[in-house]
């Protein structure tokens, strides 16, 4: 490193100080047999741990929701097949009569559209 000549005075002062300090520097006394500390986790190990956690979490989500109940997919399927408990109210008496159009001269039996009547009419 090139030194600024105008700093010569300061350099001399510091050199004298340094000589004096070095003359009174205590001998090196390293701490006695320090216990090795646990090293910080290497980056690859941390990444592997995170990946394992993600896989574990996905596996748990796939199997159960954590409370022993069926998984999300099964719950959605179940809700698609769900039937409202008030559906029976739509089962009105004589609703079969309303499905067929009554013909002229048709008896009450023929008003009820059955599979047999429909087949007979078609033929």
């Amino acid at each position: 490193m090139s030194h600024d000549p105008s700093d010569h005075d300061l350099r001399e002062r510091f050199a004298a100080l340094r000589r004096e300090v070095e003359a009174h520097t205590p001998p090196l006394a390293l701490p006695e047999a320090p216990l090795p500390r646990a090293r910080p986790l290497p980056a690859w190990a941390a990444a592997a741990a995170v990946a394992a956690l993600i896989v574990g979490a996905l596996w748990l989500l796939r199997g159960t929701d954590g409370r022993g109940t069926p998984d999300l997919g099964q719950q959605l399927l179940a809700s698609a097949q769900w039937i409202a408990p008030t559906d029976f109210l739509l089962e009105t008496p004589g609703r079969e009569l309303l499905r067929g159009v009554p013909g002229v001269g048709a008896g009450p039996d023929e008003l009820i559209e059955t599979n047999e009547n429909r087949r007979r009419n078609e033929s």
Partner: peptide, 13 residues
């Protein structure tokens, strides 16, 4: 235990 004993170095310190 003093590190600096000369007057000049003491002034600088």
């Amino acid at each position: 235990r003093a590190v600096i004993r000369s007057e000049a170095s003491a002034r600088l310190a």
